[in-house]
Amino acid sequence: MTDQDAGDSESPLTFAQQVADAMYEKDVAAQHMGIKLSKVSPGYAVMTMTVTDKMLNGHAICHGGYIFALADTAFAFACNTANITTVTLNGNITFLSLAREGDMLTAVAEVQSQSGRTGLCDVVITNQEGTRIAMVRGNSYRVKSKIVADMPTADL
């Protein structure tokens, strides 16, 4: 994407941030779970979430659904930076380690491929010590609409 593609005064980074800000404002689920956007750039997003007592399962560890929700949120933010509404088509998670109450989880999502309406994105979730908690590989699907109506779209 050139600067002109994103508007006369917008860089690709600024463009991605504007799309992410618009998405986050409407993402009630992420806000409710305490998921925060740390960084975004074209095809890339970093999200964080602290494991609370309300996220624990019967084994006193973080329920896998919350870990997947964090990964899916980071996936969404990375895949939507081009201002083309993109949803998860498929996602596979592999749990590598336990997450416990108080852990600060970080999900790093990076688009690996985007071709036409489908794409591939990888997400790595770590804790505050850098231990890998889970890895997700997902396929995305672009629907033909924009996140922000008055902004152009761009390819990743």
Rank of each mutant, 00 (worst) to 15 (best):
75 F>W: 04
90 N>D: 15
101 E>W: 06
71 A>S: 14
107 A>K: 09
53 D>Q: 09
79 C>F: 03
33 M>V: 05
73 T>R: 00
49 M>A: 06
31 Q>K: 15
102 G>A: 03
114 Q>Y: 02
49 M>N: 03
90 N>V: 01
107 A>T: 11
58 G>E: 10
61 I>C: 04
88 T>W: 01
57 N>E: 08
61 I>Q: 06
75 F>E: 00
98 L>S: 14
108 V>S: 10
114 Q>N: 07
31 Q>L: 13
63 H>E: 02
47 M>H: 07
111 V>C: 05
72 D>Y: 03
103 D>H: 07
101 E>S: 11
89 L>T: 05
53 D>H: 10
63 H>A: 07
56 L>I: 14
92 N>H: 13
53 D>M: 04
75 F>G: 01
32 H>Y: 15
103 D>V: 05
53 D>A: 13
40 V>A: 09
102 G>D: 02
47 M>G: 03
89 L>A: 15
52 T>F: 00
69 A>N: 05
90 N>G: 02
107 A>R: 09
64 G>D: 04
107 A>D: 12
96 L>V: 11
90 N>T: 14
78 A>F: 09
48 T>P: 00
67 I>A: 02
60 A>Y: 12
59 H>L: 15
44 Y>K: 10
104 M>R: 11
28 V>F: 09
86 T>D: 03
62 C>W: 10
100 R>G: 00
74 A>H: 10
36 K>Y: 02
87 V>G: 00
51 V>I: 15
54 K>W: 11
65 G>N: 01
63 H>W: 04
33 M>L: 15
74 A>M: 08
106 T>M: 12
105 L>R: 09
87 V>K: 04
73 T>P: 03
87 V>F: 06
44 Y>D: 06
44 Y>H: 13
114 Q>R: 13
108 V>H: 09
29 A>W: 04
34 G>S: 09
93 I>T: 13
74 A>P: 10
31 Q>W: 07
96 L>I: 13
71 A>K: 06
87 V>R: 05
37 L>D: 01
28 V>K: 12
95 F>A: 00
35 I>W: 02
35 I>F: 01
42 P>Y: 11
86 T>R: 06
93 I>G: 02
110 E>D: 11
84 I>N: 05
61 I>H: 07
32 H>L: 13
59 H>T: 12
70 L>G: 07
51 V>Q: 01
109 A>L: 12
86 T>M: 07
42 P>R: 11
33 M>Y: 14
66 Y>P: 01
67 I>D: 04
103 D>G: 01
39 K>G: 01
109 A>H: 11
61 I>R: 07
63 H>L: 02
52 T>S: 08
104 M>C: 12
49 M>C: 03
71 A>M: 08
72 D>I: 03
55 M>H: 15
96 L>C: 05
35 I>D: 01
87 V>C: 00
65 G>H: 01
43 G>Y: 09
57 N>R: 10
108 V>N: 12
56 L>N: 14
30 A>V: 08
75 F>I: 06
76 A>C: 09
89 L>E: 08
